[in-house]
Design a binder for these strands. Structure first.
Lengths: 240, 240
DNA sequence: CCAACAATGTGTATTATTTACATAAAAATG
DNA sequence: CATTTTTATGTAAATAATACACATTGTTGG
């Protein structure tokens, strides 16, 4: 044993941890949807009097023997009735005064789902979809959390195929482009957009066409996640 | 007030929060350095008997009225004596059994510093630099945390100018390239690497040359962070 | 039924970026 | 002063991004 290691080892880890301070821990889900060519987010009215009338993200405390991902999954299941939803941890928020009831640290999750895939069953607290673009004040630091998750999504959607979670399984290229334009807040050239996606070669032509559309229907495609996973590359190239 | 809002408002937020379960919360810092053309990480021996001989990240509990960023800053200051160090939150880790002493959720931070800028003053618990590449077992889930932060760094360094935090203020292009090659584990063409960085136009020629090098000395450059901040662009382009 | 309309679907020329590759010049070494 | 090592730079070819135009298909309304 080297001379420098003269530290007494701690034998009782449980005793050690008991001496640690504790905090209240929650998860908050930023649940995005896409409808009417607009990015939407699912919110409820806050039930805290301090924030009366303000909109709030869907969240809950993390249970005693529950992982963060599981807590977020649970929130999603309880509120939308859906399992297997796209859900990723984004960031922890820890401002000391972020909750009027005391010290509450929260971990934000970003969730993407197809609005049409589920009906809002329980609409307690006026649970419904809001247009992200026009959303202003919110309860707690939830606007800050929403902004962080939206930025995360904007960046992420350019590099990873997660936008498809916001669309039906079969979608037209126009729908896909509308999605990107709405999220990134840009206008894209239709021809170059198609070229780009076709050249990636992950879109499968289903042979089906759009229905209930009052003009020439477009082809419907599916995203081939398997193929994408297999051909995923690490190196992008230095650029900033 | 709409008919759907029949929820009783909670008036006493403090009382509400008191009913929440609590967890122990820590931060763990993955402190990267660069030396001998290798990416290094600063570790100590775990002082838990369970993990005797295993290496551990530098971490600490989050204090009662302390934000996560502040806690990470404090860990860094206490261990390296340095302030104003590059430090970013990466991810929360919450496996229920990740700590033998009980439920401890941790938030991982990635830190980048120039090894030469500080001397390891306090070398308790054999605090020293380890080569990332050859590191195997670690205490707790710290290997998993390290891997996550390393992946984060690999991706981040391609899109943001954070690598410079690992180098002295004035550096040669060869040093910069060595850094990228070490972190990304690739070989890069020297000519194209230079061309790329010069075309970004953020490198300032200091007019100085390398010293103490036993061959033709290279020019020393500085990174112009101000200019970068001003010209930062949002749109990258869809590609995955 | 047919003309007007609206959106889909495709191609090409231009420009910019990335990649591959070779040689000259400067300093250190013996 | 010749040798060695590393810096420094340029150019051609391939690839990718952009800008842009027209034919096609189905819908709608007269």
């Amino acid at each position: 044993m080297p001379a420098s290691q003269k530290v007494t080892m701690i034998q009782d880890a449980v005793q050690l941890v008991k001496g640690y301070p504790q905090v209240h821990l929650t998860v908050d889900c930023v649940i995005f949807g896409f409808d009417e060519n607009k990015l939407k987010v699912l919110l409820i009215r806050s039930d805290l009097e301090t924030y009366q009338g303000k909109w709030s993200l869907l969240g809950d405390v993390v249970h005693e023997n529950e992982e963060l991902d599981a807590a977020a999954d649970r929130v999603l299941l309880e509120r939308t009735g859906m399992t297997n939803v796209y859900l990723k941890q984004v960031q922890a928020f820890s401002r000391v005064d972020r909750h009027p009831g005391g010290r509450v640290v929260t971990v934000a999750y970003c969730s993407l789902l197809n609005i049409r895939d589920h009906e809002l069953q329980i609409t307690d607290n006026e649970l419904h979809w809001h247009t992200v673009k026009t959303l202003k004040e919110m309860a707690f630091d939830h606007k800050e959390i929403l902004d962080a998750c939206y930025s995360w999504l904007q960046k992420r959607i350019q590099e990873h195929p997660l936008g498809f979670n916001l669309l039906p399984e079969k979608f037209s290229l126009r729908e896909l482009q509308n999605l990107y334009e709405a999220i990134l807040n840009v206008e894209l050239d239709r021809r170059n957009f198609r070229k780009k996606f076709f050249s990636m070669d992950f879109l499968v032509d289903t042979g089906e066409l759009e229905t209930d559309v009052k003009h020439r229907p477009g082809k419907l495609y599916q995203f081939n996640f398997d193929k994408y996973e297999k051909s995923k590359r690490k190196w992008i190239g230095i650029d900033f």
